[in-house]
Design a protein around this nucleic acid. Structure first.
Length: 157
DNA sequence: GCCAACGTTGGC
DNA sequence: GCCAACGTTGGC
């Protein structure tokens, strides 16, 4: 059992968008970074839990919780020339990129802002808060997970 | 829109 | 395999 944080730009795809999908589920396409791909492909399992993070927006932060509904499989957008995620070096026969299916568990009543996370010494060694880390998928330790859920509980009073 | 930090690319 | 140039991310 692993815990994760996955970033999405809410203007592109928010937790509300996820909840509006059939079965509250979508395929997480467009990951084009090898480190993130390897984590998805090698370490993500069905029912792993995910912090759904809103990035590149007015108030970045954790918007809710999701889970991995399907383990990694080839990202078919990578061999679709029409897709913005097209990669000519990837094909159905030899896929370069992978995706998982993500299902919403719950949306926080109040977003837990990045600014708030930074105030907590206990979270300072999270990859998310380390400078220069721009990965769109990051592992979250059990200790950090529990701490953040407690925070979210308080935040949602 | 700025810019620091990183990843990727490609010439050599 | 080095490394400069370029592109991307993402908070501010």
């Amino acid at each position: 059992m692993h815990y994760w944080l996955m970033k999405s730009e809410p203007d592109v795809f928010s937790i509300d968008d996820l909840q509006e999908r059939p079965g509250h589920t979508t395929h997480w396409d467009g990951v084009r970074n090898y480190q993130a791909r390897n984590m998805m492909r090698d370490d993500m399992s069905v029912n792993d839990l995910v912090l759904f993070y809103h990035s590149s927006c007015k108030v970045p932060g954790i918007a809710g919780i999701a889970l991995i509904a399907r383990a990694a499989y080839p990202d078919f957008t990578s061999w679709n020339p029409e897709s913005e995620y097209y990669d000519p070096k990837s094909s159905a026969g030899n896929p370069r990129w992978y995706m998982v299916d993500v299902k919403s568990v719950r949306k926080f009543k109040h977003l837990l802002p990045l600014e708030e996370l930074k105030k907590h010494e206990a979270l300072h060694d999270m990859p998310l808060l380390r400078r220069g880390n721009r990965l769109s998928i990051m592992p979250v330790s059990k200790a950090h997970w529990d701490y953040i859920l407690a925070l979210a509980g308080r935040n949602n009073g």
